[in-house]
Amino acid sequence: MTQIPAAVQKKITVLNQHNEKLVGVLHDTGSTEMVVLCHGFKSSKDFNTIVNLAVALEKEGISAFRFDFPGNGESEGSFQYGNYHGEADDLHSVVEYFNGANRKVMAILGHSKGGGVVLLYASKYHDVHTVINLSARYILEKGIARRLGEDFLEIIKKDGFIDVKNRAGY
């Protein structure tokens, strides 16, 4: 049985298109091929599911990078509800960073809202051919109106996001 060397975890900061710092943790197994992990709604790179996925990948000798979207965890920027397009662009900044650092992002994996982000990413950018959607919602209207108000879709269409931190009832 071949022993896989232990991964080294390194904190890495990537600048997005708005010069906001996206903070993440690279689980470096020494492999130049890697998977980027995307967290869900109001979550972070330190959510158990994301950490466990990174550890499972490193046990297989696969490098992984888990990071915080803007306004989540340690990353700069404002938290925004419904900002799938912006988060797909943030993910693109991460992919470009690693591809430019002599690594190859072979897959992107998103959990919950991150699953929606990776699907949108795949439809917009065509540079990562393996896309894994883990438990993403596909009908966003159901259940959200009671938390965000009946006008939430109109606000998202108009502004591109909803401010849930300052929204009554959330």
Score class of each variant (00 low, 15 high):
residue 95 V to G: 09
residue 27 H to C: 06
residue 5 P to Y: 10
residue 109 L to M: 15
residue 168 A to E: 09
residue 76 E to G: 07
residue 152 F to H: 04
residue 21 K to M: 12
residue 76 E to P: 00
residue 103 R to K: 14
residue 155 I to E: 06
residue 50 I to T: 01
residue 66 R to M: 02
residue 73 G to A: 13
residue 14 V to M: 09
residue 42 K to D: 01
residue 38 C to K: 06
residue 58 E to W: 00
residue 160 G to S: 09
residue 32 T to F: 09
residue 124 K to V: 08
residue 41 F to N: 09
residue 18 H to D: 07
residue 162 I to A: 15
residue 151 D to T: 14
residue 25 V to R: 03
residue 127 D to E: 06
residue 20 E to L: 05
residue 53 L to D: 01
residue 64 A to L: 09
residue 77 G to Y: 04
residue 41 F to M: 09
residue 141 E to Y: 15
residue 46 D to R: 06
residue 53 L to A: 06
residue 95 V to H: 11
residue 129 H to M: 10
residue 11 K to P: 00
residue 90 D to V: 14
residue 37 L to I: 08
residue 25 V to D: 08
residue 4 I to E: 00
residue 39 H to Q: 03
residue 122 A to G: 15
residue 124 K to C: 04
residue 170 Y to L: 03
residue 16 N to F: 12
residue 60 E to I: 01
residue 48 N to R: 15
residue 12 I to D: 00
residue 107 A to M: 14
residue 113 K to Q: 15
residue 60 E to D: 02
residue 70 P to W: 09
residue 87 E to D: 04
residue 159 D to S: 07
residue 74 E to A: 11
residue 150 E to C: 01
residue 68 D to N: 08
residue 73 G to M: 10
residue 115 G to A: 15
residue 60 E to L: 13
residue 134 L to M: 14
residue 15 L to A: 12
residue 33 E to Y: 12
residue 145 A to P: 00
residue 23 V to S: 09
residue 87 E to G: 05
residue 6 A to C: 13
residue 49 T to C: 02
residue 46 D to G: 05
residue 104 K to Q: 06
residue 105 V to G: 05
residue 96 E to G: 10
residue 102 N to F: 05
residue 90 D to Y: 14
residue 149 G to I: 15
